[in-house]
């Protein structure tokens, strides 16, 4: 008991930020804020605007979770994290959920004691080269100098790809996208490799985007998804089904514009009714109220809306849906049934 009292005293003195407790949901509710780990700057996925308000595709997932749990999409405390400290921050309880374009891999899910709750963006590592180089395939890159934004899986994928194809290369590891961009544009490297979404975002800001091509090869699978701590399944379920609710909403045609109307009374589609809480009581099964999904969808829109608003073809980043289209349209985005 002494321990508790001392920790309580420290908490009052403002020293402890968090104690990773058994129930993240209770913590979040008591705190009234969701602590969300994001990248300190990744175009389209998370970036602060001039007022210091965070925006982006990853940010939107956190806002949806906050809306579902707390009923307020602005009740989120965004914690910018580097690649190196992100998992430690999650393990220590500094953040409740990590939405920082993190690749779902076996060892992270098991050895690092993380739980991936789904995939919000299917990415893959790609290559960008100047058109003038006349390269049409990554296999033509024998002896090329490759600018690589150091992450965690990019170096490994690159090494594996070149080794598998038995061609040589010279890596130039770069810490930030801004520097990699500068090096690539100055011609210090022939190729720039990072996640394809990042390549598209980068190319969009060039003075002459048309002078550069993104090669057809995608050399890795990078399923990016939000992560929670291993062991708190209740919280994991909430995060996972909030993401699924956004995906299902798009499939069912529920948007931020019509969600209120659809949730007002039961519709003819029973799945919509279950999702929006007008039929059954799915919310109670994950420890929330019946309106949770309505709030999550109303916060920023369904999956498709979020995509179009943050990274879609009409934004400066201009990403096509591709793999991230609904399964009904040939993509991989697929929510398990709400039943």
């Amino acid at each position: 008991m002494k321990k508790s009292i001392m920790l309580g005293a420290l908490a009052v003195a403002g020293l402890t930020a968090a104690s990773a407790s058994a129930s993240t949901l209770d913590d979040v509710k008591a705190r009234g804020k969701l602590n969300c780990g994001v990248s300190s700057g990744l175009t389209g996925f998370s970036q602060p605007d001039a007022n210091g308000v965070w925006e982006g595709f990853d940010v939107a997932v956190c806002r949806a979770v906050a809306a579902a749990v707390l009923g307020d999409s602005t009740a989120v405390e965004f914690v910018p994290l580097t690649t190196q400290v992100r998992f430690t921050a999650l393990a220590s309880g500094e953040i409740d959920i990590l939405a920082r374009n993190t690749t779902w891999t076996f060892s992270r899910d098991t050895d690092l004691k993380l739980d991936f709750i789904g995939v919000n963006y299917y990415d893959g590592q790609g290559f960008m080269v100047p058109k003038s180089l006349g390269v049409t395939s990554a296999k033509d890159l024998d002896g090329a100098t490759v600018c690589i934004q150091t992450g965690t899986t990019t170096e490994l994928n690159l090494a594996d790809f070149f080794r598998a194809n038995n061609i040589s290369y010279e890596p130039i590891p770069i810490e930030t996208n801004a520097e990699a961009q500068q090096q690539y544009l100055a011609g210090a490297c022939d190729v720039y490799t990072t996640d394809a979404s990042g390549l598209a975002a980068t190319r969009a800001t060039f003075e002459a985007p048309g002078d550069h091509v993104i090669l057809p090869e995608i050399i890795s699978k990078e399923p990016l998804g939000p992560v929670v701590r291993h062991g708190d399944n209740e919280w994991g379920d909430i995060a996972m089904w909030t993401l699924n609710a956004l995906i299902a909403a798009e499939e069912l045609g529920v948007t931020s514009a019509n969600v209120e109307e659809l949730a007002a009374a039961a519709t003819t589609n029973p799945e919509i009714n279950r999702l929006l809480g007008t039929e059954g009581d799915l919310g109670a099964m994950i420890g929330l109220d019946a309106q949770w999904a309505v709030r999550a969808i109303a916060a920023g829109g369904n999956y498709g809306e979020l995509f179009e608003k943050n990274i879609g073809v009409n934004t400066p980043i201009g990403l096509a849906r591709g793999l991230n289209a609904q399964w009904t349209e040939g993509g991989l985005i697929y929510a398990p049934p709400f039943r």
Partner: peptide, 21 residues
């Protein structure tokens, strides 16, 4: 280590689509 000192903040600013580059 992820704190937003002026240099790291400049990376955040560059992440905004209008100032990327």
């Amino acid at each position: 280590i992820g704190l937003l000192d002026p240099l790291n903040l400049s990376n955040s600013i560059r992440a905004a689509a209008e100032w990327n580059g």
